[in-house]
């Protein structure tokens, strides 16, 4: 395989990582906005958030992507391709993330909320100082799973001609004619990225648990320390 083709794969890898990172960042914003709105006392906010989460969990990510890229121009709006990709991916993953946020907030024990009320905390103080520090820790593992789902979903953008790892893989396949090796190589590539992401999330997980004074795993007694 020539250097040019390797460089193509490297370009594709960068686009894939870009989509994953931006998709995750914007997806987090959607997740928190919708997840907290689902718990709001305001009925309109709750309704909008419910429509968003149920809607985007019922729509295939690829269809959302096609809609943004091929249908939206029909309404006179042409998005930058990379932006359309990030938007479709983050709307999709944000809807799942919203359920994670909601679940984590709800899982904080009621006694904690009562204690905050007893201490005369405002609702905002209660959320910021009592609920979120505990809920955030509970969110890390499921968010880690969603991150791998997001990475996998980035491959869809190759179908709207964004030049990600999968797209460049198709070029390499056409150039070399070695179908089996190219697709196997692509799969290994994604597998390795997923492994790295999973490891990073595990690090964050341990840190987060430690911030609450928990250890993820009870340590065996190792002599006098």
């Amino acid at each position: 395989m020539s250097t040019g083709l390797w460089l193509r794969l490297l370009d594709g890898l960068l686009v894939t990582l870009e989509l994953t990172v931006f998709g995750a960042a914007i997806g987090l914003v959607f997740a928190f906005a919708a997840g907290l709105a689902r718990l709001s006392p305001n009925r309109v906010l709750r309704g909008v958030a419910l429509a968003y989460t149920e809607g985007f969990r019922g729509l295939p990510a690829l269809v959302v992507l096609f809609w943004l890229v091929f249908a939206l121009p029909g309404l006179g709006l042409q998005l930058e391709p990379l932006f359309a990709g990030v938007l479709a991916l983050s709307l999709n993953i944000g809807a799942y993330g919203a359920e994670v946020v909601r679940g984590a907030v709800v899982s904080v024990p009621t006694a904690q909320l009562e204690a905050a009320t007893a201490l005369n905390f405002t609702p905002w103080q209660r959320m910021r100082l009592v609920v979120l520090p505990q809920a955030l820790v509970a969110m890390v593992p499921p968010f880690g799973n969603l991150l791998v789902e997001l990475l996998k979903a980035t491959a869809l953008v190759s179908l709207v001609y964004l030049q990600d790892l999968t797209f460049q893989g198709q070029i390499v396949r056409a150039a070399t004619g070695d179908t089996a090796a190219t697709f196997a190589g692509l799969l290994v590539g994604y597998g390795v990225i997923a492994l790295v992401l999973t490891r990073l999330v595990k690090l964050v997980e341990r840190r987060a648990a430690a911030s609450l004074g928990h250890t993820t795993r009870p340590r065996a007694v190792e002599g006098a320390r």
């Binding site: 791998v148 990475l151 996998k152 980035t154 869809l156 999968t166 179908t179 196997a184 994604y190 597998g191």
Partner: peptide, 21 residues
Amino acid sequence: EFVRSTPLLVQLFFLFFVLPT
């Protein structure tokens, strides 16, 4: 673990183009 952490799209390509070979 491997299949779960790689894109279905690429797996479909792999099956469709490699199995016949």
